[in-house]
Amino acid sequence: MTGLNLIQEYLSDTDEEIENSNNENKKLFKDKNINIKLPLPESILSWKGVTYNEEVIDDPLKHDGRIRSFKHERGNWATLVYIDYLPSDNILFWMKNVIIHFVGTSNLFEEFHMSLTRTLILKFHWIDSFVEAVKNIATNYQNFSIELQSIKIYCNEDATRTFVGITVQSTNNILQNIIRTLDKLMTDYQLPIYYKDASYHISFLWCLGDQRKKLEALLPSLIANFNDFFVDHPDQRYVQIDKLKCKIGNKLYNFNLQ
């Protein structure tokens, strides 16, 4: 028997063994109702630096009682475009005193920001183009300042949390122009635009449930205390803004203004 014939016979025998083995495996799986789930390749588990996760079951007890406003779903990424606010030590001390002397049971935010979009649900395959678009928007605007103006009470749409916020206004309406430009981008992606009757603000305290009635009764005292603070610290009423930020999942992007 020639070498070629030996190879052909070996391949034929091997194919027959594989076919027999496959038939036996299929019968075994059918008989025992076995469902085999192949592991996801490592190359996919950590796309774009965003860790892959199995289905997430929300547990409010792990988040001080807070409830997610939308269900976590694989392939959907919670997204927000915003401006950072870093309070001075004096303002931070004032915020803590608001809890002690006025509000009582509430929580101080660990980080402070002013939202420029709603919290969005972004599909994975949109991320690169969305990030590039926000970057281009940032490069079309110059640095600007915002003024901390007053105090206002807010409640989220499903009435699960109430917030105490500092209302803000920008010089030359730059803030409104940026949000208007971002709204056009949202429309391109068929995402919800910013709130129609927007009140630009920086939330600094929150509490569970709808506490508007209780907190709005305290509002005159809160506003008076806020104004007294800036009589003593007039230089801290204005904040310089030099970048936009975008958080997508657990990844943070920084975009410098002109």
Rank of each mutant, 00 (worst) to 15 (best):
D58M: 03
G165N: 03
D89T: 03
E157Q: 13
V134W: 00
W206T: 08
D31A: 10
G209F: 04
A138K: 09
Y195I: 02
T51M: 00
I100R: 13
F130T: 02
F144E: 00
G249V: 06
L222E: 00
V56R: 07
C207H: 05
N254V: 01
T167Q: 04
S12R: 08
H101L: 10
N177R: 01
L61E: 14
H63P: 04
S170C: 08
V164M: 14
I91Y: 03
E73Q: 10
I166Y: 02
K32T: 12
N35I: 15
K30N: 11
K251T: 04
E42Q: 07
K243Q: 08
Y52D: 06
D58Y: 02
A133K: 09
K62A: 13
D59G: 06
E73H: 02
N177L: 03
F255L: 09
I18F: 06
L185V: 15
N177V: 01
E17Q: 14
D84R: 07
F230A: 07
L208H: 05
K184F: 07
S145A: 08
G49E: 05
I44F: 10
E55D: 13
N25P: 02
K243T: 05
L182P: 11
Y141K: 07
R118V: 02
V50G: 06
K213D: 10
H63S: 09
T51F: 00
N143Y: 12
K62L: 11
K196I: 12
N53H: 14
V231Q: 11
D235F: 01
K32Q: 13
L4Y: 12
H63T: 04
F124T: 15
S46I: 06
T187V: 06
I127C: 01
V231Y: 04
N177Q: 12
D128H: 04
A78C: 01
E216H: 13
G104M: 00
V131F: 07
I67R: 15
L45C: 15
S21T: 15
F102P: 06
D235P: 13
M1N: 11
D59E: 15
T119G: 14
T139S: 01
K214W: 06
C155E: 11
P60G: 00
D242C: 10
P41A: 01
N140Q: 10
D228R: 02
Y82F: 10
K251A: 13
M1T: 08
L92S: 01
A224I: 12
Y253Q: 13
Y85G: 05
L218I: 04
G65T: 04
T51W: 04
N97A: 07
F229I: 05
N156I: 09
M114G: 02
T51D: 00
G65W: 03
L108N: 03
E55R: 15
D31R: 08
L208S: 02
S69M: 14
I99G: 06
T79M: 04
L122A: 07
I137C: 13
T79V: 11
G49T: 07
N5Q: 00
Q236N: 06
N250P: 10
L11H: 09
K71A: 07
A78V: 08
K247P: 00
L120K: 12
P87I: 03
E54V: 11
G104S: 03
T117W: 08
Y195N: 12
R237I: 11
L182Q: 11
R212M: 10
I178P: 06
L11R: 14
E24N: 02
W94V: 00
I34E: 14
S115A: 04
S221W: 00
